[in-house]
Design a protein around this nucleic acid. Structure first.
Lengths: 230, 230
DNA sequence: TTAATAGTGTCTTTAAGACAGTATGTC
DNA sequence: GACATACTGTCTTAAAGACACTATTAA
């Protein structure tokens, strides 16, 4: 009896898992999942490295995303790699977890089997397959932390947005937000945004619509907001 | 001809690589390497998952460290996972990179084949095997960044140290350091250190020796030092 | 005019940073 | 005493935050 090829290579089952965040119209954060007919629980977009298509891990991760939606990600980052012999009954498994931010999109860009699951109280509103609830929580922790010292909130917004929209991103993700004064000072002093000249009208004073300047690096600030500290 | 088992499993060669940092007595930062007789270049401690010994990736990483030194790490963190089909001529490979901080130690704790390579100008002083120079630089970038908003400097120091020692860690790693005033305010206000009652004597006013309080979490501050910004 | 949200002025707070001064050991 | 390094006092600066105020639209 020849040894199990996995063990003889001293390797593990590898998958690349993706936590794709988006704001829903009803002011919640949600996560992209794949509902397979043969599975009880929806799962995160995930898959193996396909050597014919993927030159690097990012390729694999982006391919997972494109299988479920035609929209591109506005932000993309590796979270962590988890590996042990508990997660998968077949033995050692290893998962590289990425998270991405997406602009609010229309449902039509979703492909077959794709759906959104709301994030409620820091976790997915329903049970996901495998340890995917845990993976969402780890990505969410990163997101919660990083919006406090970076321009990440902008990547969850449409191409044109107001400063109040930025404040709203904080509220949705953290249930609290820094004061407008602080948001204005930070985001308007960092040479990241430019006035589009347009306004958003409502039954009140119209709000200035901004867009991000050119293809700028992800902006990092040198302080956290204290009002929203986790 | 049967397909290559690696490809048929759609998996990749996995290794866990470790960048272990330590301060040398002559005020430089150095990295632990393994010099194998059959290799031209020294390499980072690295290896495969051994299913019989390792329950999770951290186990594997710690085992790599213990093969080269009897000293334990004082700090341990995953940096990144790199995977593509370029790094290894055999095809797809995947490396989970960890970095660790160690206290200054005596050479006797090194095991056979282990050695230290100085970090000079942001990179190892000599060429390492494979892409290991690159991995060191990625870990170093993380370290350079993280010392500016965390208590990490403390984990590179002996159990008892002075505040000037902390300042020196900055100088060694970044070539510049925050003013003592700022270091004192930060590290003495955060309830992380306690006075040992001991002093370090020299031909000058003796310095208070501190130690870290109990088993505290890694302390994170909410601002960067600006004087040392990278 | 009112409701409603956008945006400003300004004072306070916090921690970093500059810098001069004092403290305490060895030699 | 000279020296060297440890440590403190205090003023400045930068950005967050509190909060009251003004601005501008629709209805």
């Amino acid at each position: 009896m020849s040894p199990d090829p996995i063990k003889s290579l001293n390797t593990a089952l590898i998958s690349i898992d993706l936590v794709a965040f988006q704001l829903s119209t009803k002011n919640s954060l949600r996560v992209l999942v794949h509902q397979l007919p043969e599975n009880n629980y929806p799962q995160l977009p995930a898959g193996r490295i396909e050597p014919e298509f993927d030159h690097c891990l990012e390729d694999t991760a982006k391919r997972q995303l494109s299988r479920l939606t035609s929209e591109p990600a506005t932000y993309f980052e590796q979270v962590v790699t988890i590996g042990d012999n508990q997660r998968d009954s077949r033995g050692w498994s290893l998962t590289v977890v990425y998270y991405v931010l997406m602009r609010p999109g229309n449902e039509q860009s979703l492909k077959a089997g794709a759906a959104w699951v709301d994030v409620v109280n820091g976790q997915p509103a329903m049970t996901l397959a495998y340890d995917h609830n845990q993976l969402v929580m780890e990505a969410l922790d990163r997101l919660k932390n990083k919006i406090q010292y970076s321009a990440l909130p902008v990547y969850l917004l449409p191409a044109e947005f107001t400063l109040a929209d930025i404040q709203n991103v904080f509220t949705v993700i953290l249930d609290k937000a820094p004061p407008m004064r602080s948001i204005r000072n930070r985001f308007l002093n960092c040479d990241l945004l430019e006035d589009t000249g347009k306004k958003r009208y409502g039954s009140n004073r119209p709000a200035t619509l901004y867009q991000t300047k050119r293809q700028s690096e992800t902006w990092l600030f040198d302080r956290l907001y204290l009002t929203t500290k986790v």
